[in-house]
């Protein structure tokens, strides 16, 4: 799985590929994202393309979130679409993840927390 990435200082913004984050691709996603989580501590997932997420998709986001948190880093999310926002609110994940409207807002939040 290929990820489009943008590096802003020590922050890596990753555009999640495809329109879904679900059972059929979570294994491939985990394998693809692993090196990125290994090499970085401040990561932003741009979710502007994701129109559908299921429980396993939420699981890989939480795994990434914990992985970075455990080594003193952060994962933040931006550009959430309405269907994903609805599921996050339904499950209470909107209270776990830091979610921002756009890339600029989330990068500024990272900088202000330095």
């Amino acid at each position: 799985m290929d990820f489009d990435m943008e590096t802003i200082g020590d922050i890596v913004v990753v555009l999640l590929p495809g329109e879904t984050l679900e059972a059929s691709i979570t294994l491939e996603f985990k394998q693809g994202i692993e090196p990125l989580l290994e090499q970085n501590t401040k990561v932003v997932f741009d979710m502007s393309r994701i129109r559908f997420i299921d429980s396993m998709g939420c699981g890989v986001l939480l795994t990434s979130f914990k992985r970075l948190k455990d080594k003193g880093g952060w994962l933040k999310l931006c550009c959430i679409t309405d269907p994903v926002d609805s599921i996050f609110k339904l499950m209470g994940f909107d209270r776990i993840f830091s979610i921002f409207e756009n890339r600029e807002d989330v990068v500024n939040a990272f900088k202000s927390s330095d």
Binding site: D54, S55, C58, G59, L62, T63, K66, M91, F93, I96
Partner: peptide
């Protein structure tokens, strides 16, 4: 477990919520 410490086990709860 919905406090951010669990990484799986949400499927049935999602169904119940939907």
């Amino acid at each position: 477990v919905l406090d951010g410490t669990a990484e799986a086990g949400f499927g049935l709860h999602m169904i119940d919520c939907c």
